[in-house]
Design a protein around this nucleic acid. Structure first.
Lengths: 199, 199
DNA sequence: ATTTTGTTTGACATTTTTGTCAAACGCAAA
DNA sequence: TTTGCGTTTGACAAAAATGTCAAACAAAAT
């Protein structure tokens, strides 16, 4: 019944390192050895704390999923008007994408390998709330009328794609890392202008 | 000096199968055994025709890159007006995405693992041409003024993201496969309306 | 000081995946 | 028929990655 005080929990250290390698560096099939090395621990500890490699992967995956969900929830269920919520989300997303640019892509590949989404319940509550607010703004004439799902897709696409596909886009479109950062920063305003009608 | 007439070239069959597994099913770390099985050939043939697994992967990757590039080129360098080019691209993209939804994601992960983009030369010619046409339309007042790169990003994001992230979106947003197909089909018009000002 | 408990380690076993090779095969040319 | 040649195969070797285990260790509890 200890819990080691000397340094940060080894278990957490392994998780953090794995997360960085997966979502930060995009090295989705890093070996347990590589993760252990990066964390500066013995590889066997991965088995000690997480039975198997698969288990570590799932744990890290689910943690990230949960965290992202919570952050989104706290924005969507705040009392601010929709427009501000969307700006908040843009800030949050572009910020976290600096640390973990590959998170969504990883989720897609996982999703595809039979890893189902966990919390349908709360996700659909979140979507319902969001769709409702969108519909209201459409009635007020602040947003072009369309199915709320389409608005949602527009919003997410414009926000996430440049971040998720950054390596590809940066390479093919011929940007320097700095240049691309500036491009992303500029996008906040451009996205808002696309989503909402001018006043 | 034969070239086997009985059935399609084995070499091509392997390539096609690998392509389907990578880009069609998103199983990016399929083993050579799995690919051979899917193609209905002996695994050793992969080594016979493509020396190594890596070599097969690269070949398939470069072929796809080249093919996509050619198709894009033929649209961008056609004589049609910009608006029609963009509609053509939407059609092309949504069509091919039915067969290979994971192509872009695969490229991103590859890109990240040190696989550089090949044909910078012709890509930048293509982009220049495109940017020029966009600028002209902006002057005419048909497109909201912004950096052409941003317009490009908007266009690609709106088009590619829903396709690339389909497994994730479908799952989290609670769509049936058919429902999502309809959503995608509806998007063509929605994207056009977002990109161009109403006449 | 000794025991206990949770952690860490290295050596080893197992499993998975890839690569090699000689022999078999089938077909067309000599 | 036989020879030559590209293709195909299964058995085997090698490599890479994961998982297990007993023993060492270190710190707290007795």
């Amino acid at each position: 019944m200890s819990a080691k005080i000397t340094e940060l929990d080894t278990e957490q250290l392994i998780k953090d390192t794995a997360r960085r390698i997966f979502f930060g560096e995009g090295r989705f099939n890093a070996t347990t050895q590589e993760i252990a090395d990066a964390a500066g621990v013995n590889r066997t500890l991965i088995n000690y704390y997480f039975r198997s490699r698969d288990n570590l992967f799932n744990t890290v995956f689910e943690d990230a999923q949960k965290q992202e969900h919570e952050r989104t929830e706290s924005i969507v269920f705040s009392t601010k008007p929709l427009k501000e919520k969307i700006m908040d989300y843009l800030d949050l997303y572009f910020e976290q994408s600096k640390e973990f640019p590959y998170l969504e892509i990883y989720m897609v590949t996982q999703m595809n390998q039979g890893c189902a989404y966990k919390d349908h319940e709360s996700m659909s509550r979140l979507l319902d709330k969001f769709y409702l607010e969108i519909a209201v703004e459409m009635d007020k004439g602040n947003i072009t009328k369309m199915r709320p799902e389409q608005f949602m897709l527009n919003f997410i696409s414009l926000t996430c794609f440049p971040v998720s596909m950054r390596p590809l886009l940066q390479e093919t479109m011929g940007f320097t890392p700095d240049g691309f950062d500036r491009l992303i920063e500029e996008r906040k305003q451009i996205i808002m202008d696309l989503l909402f009608k001018p006043e």
